Simulated scan of single mutants.
Amino acid sequence: MTDTRLGRLMEAEMRDQPRVLAALADRFTRIGSEVAELFTRAGEGFVDSSDGGAARSNHAAAGDPAGVADSPVGVAEGPVGVAFLARGSSDNAALLGRYAVELQTGLPTCLVAPSIATAYGREPAGFRGWLLIALSQSGRTPEIVDLTGRYIAAGAKVVAVTNDPDSALARIADYTVALEAGPERAVPATKTVTAQMLAVLAIASGLGAGGMTQLEAAELPAAAADLLADGGAVERAAELLATVDRLAVVGRSACYPAALETALKLQETTGLMAHGFSSADFRHGPIAVTGPGAPALLLAGSGPADTDTLSLREPLSARYAPIVLAGTATEAPITWPALGNLGECLLATIRGQQLALAVARELGIDADHPTGLAKVTLTH
Results as ranks from 00 to 15, higher is better:
residue 1 M to K: 11
residue 4 T to G: 08
residue 5 R to T: 11
residue 6 L to Y: 04
residue 6 L to D: 06
residue 10 M to T: 11
residue 14 M to W: 05
residue 16 D to G: 15
residue 17 Q to W: 04
residue 23 A to R: 11
residue 23 A to Q: 10
residue 28 F to V: 03
residue 30 R to L: 10
residue 37 E to T: 08
residue 40 T to Y: 04
residue 45 G to K: 02
residue 46 F to T: 05
residue 49 S to W: 12
residue 54 A to P: 06
residue 54 A to H: 10
residue 56 R to I: 06
residue 60 A to P: 02
residue 60 A to R: 06
residue 63 G to T: 06
residue 63 G to P: 05
residue 64 D to I: 01
residue 66 A to Y: 15
residue 68 V to K: 09
residue 70 D to K: 14
residue 70 D to H: 15
residue 70 D to P: 03
residue 73 V to S: 13
residue 73 V to E: 12
residue 74 G to T: 07
residue 77 E to N: 13
residue 77 E to Q: 13
residue 78 G to C: 09
residue 78 G to Q: 06
residue 80 V to C: 15
residue 82 V to E: 04
residue 83 A to M: 12
residue 84 F to I: 10
residue 85 L to E: 09
residue 96 L to I: 01
residue 100 A to H: 05
residue 102 E to P: 03
residue 107 L to I: 11
residue 110 C to W: 05
residue 111 L to F: 04
residue 116 I to V: 15
residue 118 T to D: 12
residue 118 T to R: 10
residue 119 A to Y: 02
residue 125 A to V: 08
residue 125 A to K: 12
residue 127 F to I: 06
residue 131 L to F: 03
residue 136 S to P: 02
residue 139 G to R: 00
residue 143 E to G: 09
residue 148 T to A: 15
residue 150 R to Q: 12
residue 153 A to T: 09
residue 157 K to E: 07
residue 157 K to A: 10
residue 162 T to R: 06
residue 164 D to I: 01
residue 165 P to S: 08
residue 172 I to G: 10
residue 172 I to D: 06
residue 174 D to C: 12
residue 175 Y to E: 05
residue 175 Y to I: 07
residue 175 Y to C: 09
residue 177 V to A: 14
residue 177 V to P: 12
residue 177 V to E: 11
residue 178 A to C: 06
residue 179 L to Y: 01
residue 179 L to Q: 00
residue 179 L to F: 00
residue 184 E to S: 12
residue 187 V to R: 01
residue 188 P to T: 03
residue 191 K to H: 13
residue 191 K to Q: 14
residue 194 T to M: 04
residue 195 A to P: 08
residue 196 Q to M: 14
residue 196 Q to T: 11
residue 196 Q to D: 11
residue 198 L to T: 00
residue 198 L to G: 10
residue 199 A to W: 03
residue 202 A to Q: 04
residue 204 A to K: 01
residue 205 S to L: 07
residue 205 S to F: 02
residue 206 G to D: 11
residue 209 A to N: 13
residue 210 G to S: 07
residue 210 G to Y: 02
residue 215 L to I: 00
residue 216 E to Y: 03
residue 221 P to A: 02
residue 224 A to V: 15
residue 224 A to E: 14
residue 226 D to L: 00
residue 226 D to M: 00
residue 233 A to M: 11
residue 254 A to T: 09
residue 254 A to L: 08
residue 255 C to T: 02
residue 267 Q to P: 03
residue 270 T to Q: 08
residue 272 L to M: 13
residue 275 H to Y: 13
residue 278 S to E: 14
residue 279 S to T: 02
residue 282 F to V: 10
residue 282 F to A: 12
residue 287 I to Y: 02
residue 288 A to H: 04
residue 289 V to D: 07
residue 289 V to E: 07
residue 289 V to S: 10
residue 290 T to W: 04
residue 296 A to T: 01
residue 298 L to E: 00
residue 303 G to W: 00
residue 303 G to I: 00
residue 303 G to N: 05
residue 307 T to Q: 14
residue 309 T to E: 05
residue 309 T to F: 03
residue 310 L to Q: 08
residue 316 L to K: 09
residue 323 I to F: 04
residue 325 L to M: 04
residue 329 A to P: 00
residue 330 T to E: 13
residue 331 E to T: 14
residue 335 T to V: 01
residue 335 T to L: 00
residue 342 L to I: 11
residue 346 L to G: 09
residue 348 A to C: 14
residue 354 Q to E: 13
residue 356 A to F: 03
residue 357 L to P: 13
residue 360 A to E: 07
residue 362 E to G: 01
residue 362 E to T: 05
residue 364 G to E: 06
residue 370 P to T: 08
residue 371 T to L: 09
residue 372 G to F: 00
residue 375 K to C: 15
residue 375 K to R: 15
